[in-house]
Amino acid sequence: NQASVVANQLIPINTALTLVMMRSEVVTPVGIPADDIPRLVSMQVNRAVPLGTTLMPDMVKGYP
């Protein structure tokens, strides 16, 4: 099973992602692959992302 990117904390709308905000976890449904975490750094979320939420491609501005 492939690990996905999961919010490690509440991420407010328009926040630029940092490594501490994300963790990898095997979840269903599958979200953004954990391998993409380095690419996500400094990209902004377009909505508030609660703790434990799987990051989906449509939540991150400019992804992929």
Rank of each mutant, 00 (worst) to 15 (best):
residue 1 N to A: 12
residue 1 N to P: 13
residue 2 Q to V: 15
residue 3 A to S: 13
residue 3 A to G: 09
residue 3 A to Q: 10
residue 3 A to R: 11
residue 4 S to L: 02
residue 4 S to W: 02
residue 5 V to R: 00
residue 5 V to D: 00
residue 6 V to D: 00
residue 6 V to G: 01
residue 6 V to M: 05
residue 6 V to W: 02
residue 7 A to D: 02
residue 7 A to Y: 02
residue 8 N to R: 14
residue 8 N to H: 14
residue 8 N to Y: 03
residue 9 Q to W: 07
residue 9 Q to M: 12
residue 10 L to R: 11
residue 11 I to H: 01
residue 12 P to N: 09
residue 12 P to W: 04
residue 13 I to C: 05
residue 13 I to Y: 10
residue 15 T to C: 05
residue 15 T to G: 07
residue 15 T to R: 06
residue 16 A to G: 15
residue 16 A to H: 15
residue 17 L to E: 01
residue 17 L to M: 08
residue 17 L to T: 03
residue 18 T to D: 07
residue 18 T to R: 10
residue 18 T to K: 11
residue 18 T to E: 10
residue 19 L to G: 06
residue 19 L to R: 13
residue 22 M to G: 01
residue 22 M to R: 00
residue 23 R to H: 06
residue 23 R to P: 03
residue 23 R to W: 04
residue 25 E to D: 14
residue 26 V to W: 12
residue 26 V to Y: 07
residue 29 P to N: 04
residue 29 P to M: 04
residue 29 P to V: 10
residue 30 V to L: 15
residue 30 V to G: 05
residue 31 G to R: 02
residue 32 I to W: 03
residue 32 I to F: 03
residue 33 P to N: 08
residue 34 A to H: 07
residue 34 A to T: 10
residue 35 D to A: 11
residue 36 D to I: 07
residue 36 D to V: 09
residue 36 D to F: 15
residue 37 I to W: 03
residue 38 P to I: 08
residue 38 P to R: 10
residue 38 P to H: 15
residue 38 P to F: 11
residue 39 R to D: 13
residue 39 R to I: 14
residue 40 L to G: 00
residue 41 V to Y: 05
residue 41 V to N: 04
residue 41 V to L: 15
residue 42 S to A: 15
residue 42 S to F: 07
residue 43 M to C: 05
residue 44 Q to P: 06
residue 45 V to E: 01
residue 46 N to L: 13
residue 47 R to H: 08
residue 48 A to Q: 15
residue 49 V to Y: 02
residue 49 V to G: 02
residue 50 P to A: 08
residue 50 P to I: 07
residue 50 P to L: 12
residue 51 L to H: 10
residue 51 L to N: 11
residue 52 G to T: 03
residue 52 G to Q: 03
residue 52 G to L: 04
residue 54 T to A: 06
residue 55 L to I: 14
residue 55 L to V: 08
residue 57 P to N: 06
residue 57 P to H: 11
residue 57 P to Q: 08
residue 57 P to S: 10
residue 59 M to G: 03
residue 59 M to H: 12
residue 61 K to H: 11
residue 62 G to E: 11
residue 62 G to T: 06
residue 63 Y to I: 06
residue 63 Y to P: 04
residue 64 P to V: 12
